[in-house]
Amino acid sequence: MTPARCAIVGSGNIGTDLMYKIQRSDVLELGAMIGIDPDSDGLARARDEGVPTSPEGADWLLERAGEFDIVFEATTARVHAAYAPRYEAAGLKAVDLTPAKVGPNVVPSVNIDVALSGPNVNMITCGGQATTPIVAAVNGVAEVPYAEIVSTVASRSAGPGTRQNIDEFTKTTSKALEEVGGAQIGKAIMVLNPAEPPIIMRNTVFCGLAAGYDEATVAKSIVDMVAQVQEYVPGYRLKSDPVFDDGPYATPAGVVPARVIALLEVEGAADYLPSYAGNLDIMTAAATRVGEAIARHRGGAS
């Protein structure tokens, strides 16, 4: 099959890291890296990689939309919300790494199919990519009335976008715990840690368990899911076996008799930012995975 022709809009941390991952893909061909600042590090690195660049923003892409199949949006929610209808009208499939939430939430290991139909998918948040698979895994074999996650990232890996939008992070991730994870009620907490050397991204998932669950089945489902995520995020791992605690716990979705805790670490591939920035890595790795699924689907269909 011919690789799908891709463009990245946004030459910041996310866009630049994504560039290296797409460059390694057999089914994606990076045709352009588009920014708004000709002097940005991202565009300079794209030129070094031999990728065509433009500092003229998404309009540049729309002028030659016929040359591309997929656009990866790594700008801001506002830019994406403005351009999403125009991408669609131009026949470009959009993989959105901003919190614009134009399209449905996608997590490769849980619901990759939503990316195959429709013009636009949203990658949620880094914390959402790291934690919703676990909630979905538990929810697949037990009833999860309430799920909660704590996502801790190194201060140095949280750019101004994250810092200005910390409410959006927690709200978007909470919602994904429900919509993608399957919990009745979700809650997300985000913590920034300034320790030096920087800490590797950590995520802790708590799932309230309704009566009638089987501990071994729940644990196995979590472990299997971790292996599935590892296929596209090699640095994603459980720090220990899942921990089961007896309650009762008075969660917002009612009293549950027990909970399971998954302690996760995400070490990045260090494509652009150092390996502690697993938060960056899991977003771009998941987006690449989604792009590849779209490319294969197109390839199969044509």
Partner: peptide, 12 residues
């Protein structure tokens, strides 16, 4: 060098 809010690290 855990900071406030990282109660989950106690279990870890």
């Amino acid at each position: 060098q855990v900071v406030g809010g990282q109660e989950d690290m106690i279990i870890d």
